[in-house]
Nucleic acid binder design. Structure first.
Lengths: 356, 356
DNA sequence: CTGAAAGCGCTTACAG
DNA sequence: CTGAAAGCGCTTACAG
């Protein structure tokens, strides 16, 4: 039911009842006004640094503020003002090293614009993504930066129409027209695979994330394009897409590396896949070439160093957040697709010749 | 000025003016009530799933809700209710691989309690920590999980008194009595250094973070204790504390490794230091033993594998967040110090004998 | 320079 | 079962 409100199923409803005595004793502007012997509006003027208050009045108000330990309730302020000075970021998993720098970059831009950042992990679950996004909209965040898990974002249309700025990152929105900032997944993967081909490989495996994920599909497309451009027919058994947990990836890699016609090189579709495949390759009797999408820490210290197609996670986050605040500036912007280049970093594993 | 409000220097004040036409056209309960031909309170009942509404009335309200695309404004709700169902997490840097899992764990606990998570990076700057913490309090978060950058948290006293639940993680609060969840930094470091000693080392270097950071000081203390227990006098030149940027750490490592009496082993004080030192050791003519505090990805795949004192970042976050919500349950809790054990993970680098 | 009144969008307490 | 009034803590628009 897009665009509707549901009953009693939102986070706030499950909160424990307010615990009596500890709370509610915060002083308000009214209290400050009473103590300082001035009107409410005068307190507001002082707190907000508005002009038109005599130094003497101001001092009295300041004293009352300090004596009471008053701190303005921004959530009341926000209700009146319209803007909440907060934005939401929905990503897959904050614990993934790819999202840390991205998230930090979004935070820095938000900070520069005086906004706070609310983070949420979708755990790659479209329902959880939607639940989170709508909860954030209910809190009236000014904007949303979304790394989508789902492929249908029509549920956001009423929100966008109501003024919630929205930018998608890493993967495009599904079934709505919205800004998106992404890496050149297709080109990056194609270049990486072409690099392996240039080093003599013909039987090259591809192990990636679930095909419904845009980046996984694009990178596979890049793999296919490179192979086709080189005139190499691709065997179905060379490609494996699915969840990125170590067991699945390990099995996929081991299968490609066994049998009568094993692959001599592997292209891995993201950082998690790469890490697992490195372990598998370390156990192989012959060296197997490897190029991975996404850079990984210490990649240069392994034997051999890991050649990667690096994307700039921080730049993705920064670009998206900047776009978000441009939307919020009020200038009307036609939804755009901004593509950031990737960079092939050669460290050894991608320059190994085919074994046998 | 703890406990006071300042003028015009808070984030929300720097926001651009509200952009006219796109905003403010959100339907409210009043609009829904008018369209459904019922009272405001009836709409509230339906939206919140309260009893006492005839099925017919409910249907009319639901239709109005869908027709208008109404979504309850939770920030107005919150103003009335008292609780905001949101908590803040202040950490050093979301981009650091140590904080990703910690942050995710806090988020999961918050989610289980129906709360959202606002993240902020202090960048190890005490002023920024305070600014962030107070901004979050102004938004009336229900609680705060803080990895402190500063060492004086008296500025939080009025907030805590006003009911903001507060738990410190990774490092204790300064000058206030508050819950804290941390790893056994002293014991972990002592065990790690004792491990090196057990493998025959006597000249062992220690490279850590700035001494004003609690974890850095504790780990140094652990180093000293292990050396003392083994009856090994420590030379000043074996210890180096300071910022963890690669240049400083590299210089420190190179100094210890040169001269007439170079160290034969190094104990590194955190993940960032370890990563840099691994690079330096890789360039040495002789193998140098290494034990690092904090686990790092791919540590097992390096040659040799990196022996570490691992702490459980996710458990730190989870434990702290659970404690926070116990505070919010209303039961009075005496501030506690909860210490989590560390784990020595042997992978090779810590088991190397002294060279020469 | 100062302040009383109305209102932001909800919920609470109460009356019908 | 239903709704009008008051209020959460601020800001806005206006009057003195």
């Amino acid at each position: 039911m897009p665009g509707t409100a549901r009953r009693a199923d939102r986070p706030a409803d499950r909160l424990p009842a307010r615990a009596g005595s500890r709370y509610g004793n915060r002083p308000t502007m009214k209290d400050v006004a009473a103590r300082a012997g001035v009107g409410l509006k005068t307190v507001s003027r002082v707190v907000n640094g508005e002009p038109g208050v005599t130094p003497d009045t101001e001092r009295r108000v300041q004293e009352a503020i300090e004596a009471l330990g008053f701190r303005r309730n921004d959530s009341a302020r926000v209700l009146r003002k319209g803007r909440t000075a907060s934005i939401g970021l929905i990503l897959e998993d904050l614990a993934d090293p790819f999202y840390g720098p991205l998230s930090r970059a979004v935070e820095e831009v938000a900070r520069a614009h005086g906004a706070l950042l609310i983070n949420g992990s979708s755990a790659e679950d479209p329902e959880r993504e939607q639940e989170l996004a709508l909860a954030l909209c209910a809190r009236r965040v000014d904007g949303l930066v979304v790394i989508p898990a789902g492929d249908d974002h029509r549920y956001l249309e009423p929100e966008i129409r109501a003024g919630v700025a929205t930018v998608f990152v890493d993967r495009p929105a599904g079934r709505i027209d919205a800004d998106v900032v992404l890496s050149d997944n297709f080109g990056g993967a194609r270049d990486g695979v072409a690099h392996l081909i240039a080093h003599g490989h013909r039987r090259i495996g591809f192990i990636g994330d679930m095909p419904r994920i845009h980046t996984a599909a694009e990178r596979l497309r890049g793999y296919r394009a490179a192979m086709e451009e080189a005139g190499i027919p691709v065997a179905e058994s060379w490609m494996s897409l699915g969840v990125t947990d170590p067991e699945r990836v390990r099995r996929a890699a081991e299968e490609m590396l066994s049998g009568p016609e094993p692959v001599t090189a592997v292209f891995t579709g993201n950082n998690r896949v790469t890490v697992t495949v490195i372990r598998v390759l370390a156990e192989q009797p012959h060296p197997v070439a490897l190029v991975g999408f996404d850079d990984i820490e210490l990649a240069d210290l392994l034997q051999p160093g890991v050649t990667v197609v690096a994307q700039d996670a921080a730049a993705l986050g920064r670009t998206a957040a900047e776009r978000l605040f441009r939307q919020l500036d009020g200038t009307f912007l036609t939804p755009e697709r901004i593509e950031l280049p990737t960079r092939l970093v050669m460290r050894g594993s991608g320059e190994l010749p085919p074994a046998r």
